[in-house]
C-alpha cells in the first residue's frame, strides 16, 4: 500500500514538474540572473523588459485566442506593418486619436476578411492568412511608396514619452487588453464557444454553437490587436514601414505555445501567454546582458522553444 502511494507521489511529482516546467525554468533563470548579473535587477532594466515585451504581447494575447479556436493567423506581422504605415500617414494629416480609431477599424476589417475566408469559404487558416499576409504587406509597400516614413506629430511624441516610474503607456494598454480578453474567454458565452470550437469543431457545431461566428470574432480581435501593436510601436519610434514586425508572427505563436496553449486548439488561456511573453523577453534581455553574440542568441532562443514544446508534448503524453 505504502509502495503504491510512494509510486503515485513520484509520478505526480514528475507530472507536476513537466506541467510547470516553463515556470520553474523561468524562476530559476531569473534567480540566476539576479545574482549573477546585478544589472539585471536594476529598475531601469526591469522596466525595459516590461516596456519591450508588452508591445508584441498585445498581439500574442489575441493570437492565443486564435490558437485556442483551433486556427492560426500568419497575417499579424503584415497587418502590424500596414498599421504602422497607415497610422503614421494619418498622423501627418489629422489628430492622432482619429488616426488611431481609423487604424484600429482597418485592422478589424483585415481580421474580418480573414475570418470570412476561414469561416464561410472553409479555407484553411494557414492558406487564407498567408494570402492576407502578402496582400497587407504589398499594400503597405504601395501606400508608403516603398520607403519608411515618419511623423513629426507633436502629440504622438508627447504620448510616447508618457511614463510612470519609467513604465510607458504600452504595458498599461497591454493590461487592458489582457483584462478584456481574459474576461471574454473566461466568463462569457463567446469565450466558451471559442474553446468548444477549437476543442472539437464538429461536436461544437452539432451542439448548436455558432462556430463560424466564433472564428470570425477571434480573427477580428486579432486584426484589432495587430493594429494596436502597430500603433504602440509608432508611439515609440514615430515611424512606419512595410518591413516592420517581420518576426511578430513567430514571436506570438512562440509566446502562446510556451505559455501552454495547445496548437491543436481547445486548451490554453490568454493569461498563460504572459509566461511565454515574459520568458521570451527575459531571455532576450539576459542573453544581451550575458554578452552572448547575435548568432548564438538566435540559436538559444530557438533551442528554448524546441525544449519547451518538447516538455509540452511529454506532459500531454503523460496525461493520456
Amino acid at each position: 500500500m505504502n509502495k503504491n502511494r510512494s509510486t503515485l507521489r513520484k509520478s505526480e511529482l514528475q507530472f507536476f514538474f513537466l506541467e510547470n516546467a516553463v515556470i520553474i525554468v523561468l524562476t530559476a533563470f531569473v534567480v540566476f540572473m539576479v545574482f549573477y548579473r546585478p544589472s539585471f535587477r536594476s529598475w531601469a532594466n526591469l522596466t525595459t523588459i516590461i516596456n519591450d515585451c508588452c508591445m508584441y504581447g498585445i498581439t500574442a494575447l489575441a493570437m492565443t485566442a486564435v490558437i485556442i479556436c483551433g486556427e492560426i493567423d500568419l497575417s499579424v506581422s503584415s497587418i502590424y506593418a500596414w498599421s504602422t504605415c497607415l497610422f503614421v500617414i494619418l498622423c501627418n494629416s489629422m489628430n492622432i486619436f482619429s488616426a488611431a480609431v481609423i487604424t484600429l477599424l482597418v485592422g478589424a476589417v483585415w481580421g474580418l476578411f480573414n475570418g470570412m475566408l476561414v469561416a464561410f469559404l472553409r479555407m484553411p487558416a494557414f492558406v487564407a492568412t498567408l494570402g492576407t499576409m502578402y496582400t497587407a504587406k504589398g499594400l503597405a509597400y504601395y501606400i508608403t511608396e516603398e520607403k519608411p516614413i515618419n511623423t513629426g506629430n507633436p502629440m504622438l511624441a508627447t504620448i510616447g514619452k508618457i511614463n510612470i516610474a519609467n513604465i510607458s503607456l504600452v504595458p498599461i494598454v497591454f493590461l487592458i487588453v489582457l483584462a478584456v480578453l481574459y474576461c471574454i474567454m473566461r466568463y462569457t458565452k463567446v469565450g466558451r464557444n471559442v474553446y468548444a470550437t477549437g476543442g472539437n469543431y464538429e461536436v461544437a457545431r452539432l451542439s448548436g454553437i455558432n462556430v463560424k461566428l466564433s472564428k470570425i470574432i477571434v480573427f477580428v480581435f486579432t486584426g484589432i490587436c495587430s493594429a494596436l501593436s502597430g500603433i504602440m510601436y509608432c508611439t515609440r519610434v514615430y515611424s512606419g514601414a512595410a518591413t516592420y514586425g517581420s518576426d511578430l508572427t513567430t514571436w506570438c505563436v512562440a509566446a502562446a505555445v510556451i505559455g501552454g496553449t495547445s496548437m491543436s486548439g481547445g486548451y490554453g488561456g490568454v493569461h498563460r501567454t504572459i509566461i511565454g511573453i515574459l520568458l521570451m523577453a527575459i531571455l532576450f534581455n539576459a542573453l544581451t546582458l550575458l554578452g552572448v553574440d547575435g548568432s548564438m542568441q538566435r540559436f538559444i532562443r530557438g533551442l528554448v522553444l524546441v525544449v519547451v514544446i518538447m516538455f509540452d508534448a511529454i506532459s500531454k503524453a503523460k496525461k493520456r
Binding site: S39, A44, T48, D52, V237, T243
Partner: peptide, 16 residues
C-alpha cells in the same frame, strides 16, 4: 532591423 528592438538593446546595455 527593428528600431524598437535596438532601442531596447541599448537600454539594456546602458543599464549594464
Amino acid at each position: 532591423a527593428n528600431a524598437d528592438k535596438q532601442l531596447t538593446q541599448f537600454k539594456t546595455a546602458v543599464a549594464d
